[in-house]
């Protein structure tokens, strides 16, 4: 075999190697999900969703965990969207290019890379103990908000950047103040992609367990939370708890819980993809 042939062979071999690798991860995930469905689907029922946790695997359900997850999501949306979008607007539209804004930028890039469990430690010391919130929903949602605010800031800035300058300049030309231009022109124009980014961040937040365990979320809560100051548990934490038990029946429960969690995650991801496509079609600058 001469060199040219050998080179051609390498080339086509690598092509198949590439396809194989591209599909490898996806196939593995598909196999995993198939096995989960196989073990968990039979356990999934309305009873499973509306039952309180229990020592007996066949009686246990995810009711408290599910309600806790919804509470957590709602509170986190309130805090993280307000602060994240405001900070994003400030950095993109107000902050002068200088030392301060450069610092903020480096700082945010760094915060995105901080492991989630470190945010848990921050929340434990700051919210759980110094503010005396204990293992409440409020302490947990503050922590989770801090975790996703950097992501929301980055999305907000990129969305605002994508709006053409001409729109802003037209608003100024008509005598709008800075805030009027932002609130009536830029934000509506950027809202689609901001919302997409927020939903993606929430899809990530809904699966977080580690930081919230550290802040003080409980593993076993026999009641549903009624106020932000109540103790709570979450779906991922409930799954973690069942997974770490030796009895095989609890593994089945964990599988069923995972089906619900994956469903929620994929629905959120799906909504964001749908919004993104719709948005991209509608708006062409």
């Amino acid at each position: 075999m001469n060199r040219t042939k050998k080179n051609r062979l390498n080339d086509s071999l690598f092509k198949y190697f590439g396809i194989l690798n591209t599909l490898l991860g996806l196939i593995m995930l598909a196999v995993f999900i198939f096995i989960i469905l196989q073990t968990g689907l039979s356990r999934l029922s309305w009873d499973f969703i509306t039952s309180l946790p229990s020592r007996f695997p066949e009686k246990a359900g995810i009711y408290t965990a599910l309600i806790g997850t919804f509470w957590m999501l709602a509170l986190t949306i309130i805090f993280s969207v307000t602060l994240g979008v405001s900070a994003g607007i400030y950095l993109e539209e107000y902050a002068r290019k200088g030392f301060f804004s450069r610092m903020l930028e480096i700082n945010i890039s760094n915060l995105v890379g901080v492991p989630s469990v470190i945010y848990g430690i921050l929340g434990l010391a700051l919210f759980n103990r110094y503010l005396g919130l204990g293992g409440s929903l409020l302490a947990g949602s503050f922590t989770l908000s801090l975790l996703i605010i950097p992501v929301i800031i980055v999305t907000t800035r990129e969305s605002l950047k994508a709006v053409p300058r001409t729109i802003k300049e037209a608003a100024y030309a008509l005598g709008a103040t800075r805030w009027q231009a932002i609130s009536r022109q830029l934000l509506p124009a950027a809202s689609g992609s901001i919302v997409t980014g927020i939903i993606l961040a929430l899809a990530r937040a809904i699966g977080e367990a580690a930081p919230l365990i550290v802040v003080g979320a409980l593993v076993y809560v026999p009641f549903i939370p009624n106020s932000p100051l109540d103790d709570y548990t979450l779906l991922p934490i409930q799954i973690f708890n069942w997974t770490s038990r030796p009895q095989p029946e609890f593994q089945v429960n964990a599988s069923a819980g995972i089906i619900v969690l994956l469903f929620l995650t994929f629905v959120l991801n799906g909504i964001s993809i749908y919004l993104r496509n719709k948005w991209q079609k509608k708006v062409k600058w």
Binding site: T22, G25, L26, L29, I36, A203, R204, I206, G207, E208, A209, A210, P236, I237, I239, F240, T243, A254, S255, I258, L261, L262, T265, F266, N269
Partner: peptide, 14 residues
């Protein structure tokens, strides 16, 4: 491929 990164980590642990 992005789906791989969006699966909750407790699910990967399981």
């Amino acid at each position: 491929l992005e789906v791989l990164a969006s699966v909750p980590t407790v699910v990967y642990g399981f």
